[in-house]
Nucleic acid binder design. Sequence first.
DNA 1: GTGTTATGACTGACTGGTCAGTCCGAACAA
DNA 2: TTGTTCGGACTGACCAGTCAGTCATAACAC
Lengths: 172, 172
Amino acid sequence: MARSVEQTKERIVDAATVEFSEHGIAGARVDRIVARAGCGKGLVYNYFGNKEQLFDVVYDRLVTQAVEAVEFTADDLPGYAVGLHEYNRRHPLVSRLTTWFQLERASRTAPAVSESVRHKSTAVAAAQADGKIDPAIPAATLMDMIVAIAMLGDPDPDSVRLAVGKLVAVTP
Amino acid sequence: MARSVEQTKERIVDAATVEFSEHGIAGARVDRIVARAGCGKGLVYNYFGNKEQLFDVVYDRLVTQAVEAVEFTADDLPGYAVGLHEYNRRHPLVSRLTTWFQLERASRTAPAVSESVRHKSTAVAAAQADGKIDPAIPAATLMDMIVAIAMLGDPDPDSVRLAVGKLVAVTP
DNA sequence: GTGTTATGACTGACTGGTCAGTCCGAACAA
DNA sequence: TTGTTCGGACTGACCAGTCAGTCATAACAC
């Protein structure tokens, strides 16, 4: 078994992803993480500094993956919402981790998120100016609502598509 | 000293409300709670059993208050959403506490909540049958979406009213 | 090929501190 | 006096983070 730093780091991050999404930062136990990763405790501190910094690495990785996986077009917000909804259903850890982040780490801003949010809001605003999307609701607010709806666990995809379709529909 | 017992309990619950909404269950510190309440540590265990049970008392009380404070009519869901939104802005602890609850205590079901949710969903379903609300989205899902929108912190009330108005509007 | 030294990934027992929960005695009411 | 409320010192478990040392591999000498 060749020792590879990168592989070991990844095992730790994978284990930490599960632990943090279940228990949050305060509830997570480093001992459980290293047990799951099959390594000694010291490695967490060698590679990541401390528990909180490990959480940040875990969160950034997961969110970046999610942002990259779900394609976005301001022209088809219902489709985007359904895509995000599907992704969350397929990766249930993401929404829990995001929620923990908002509660326990709100002070920090994840670079990947803030950039993607800004980019999407400006695209939506442009589509509103073009008359493709109802301009009654501010672009940033509209995006918040769409994400909130897509994050709900229970609904079926059709309801998500329908609801977002109604939100963006231009009323005469 | 029967009267002062109730007062002391209330001081503890008030203090615990702040502590739990800031740090959740795992992050909350009983020492901080009793310091804020101005009483000894033992009282928490005399009156409430343990930290988790204290959280349940705190959560049930806050949620019951919220449910009672915001009036509901299936005929005016946008108005309900705005009312809920206003309430959350005025009582920012509620939404945080609810989120902690969902993450750390999802197994438990708060009686006040489940009953009110069922009641509201059936009322909405009836309004859909009457043709007052678009029946395309299932009543329970629609309620989830409305609550999700109302829980958002950033939007202005007008946007909330507008959005929910669009969701419920019957399309010809 | 064999012995020797160097490197750094990795371990896990340990430490210092924290925190939930207990318990005993003081204070007070009846 | 007797029962009840209450404070806060105390206990023991737990846990984040550390550190002295192990071990596998590589590199080099002969």
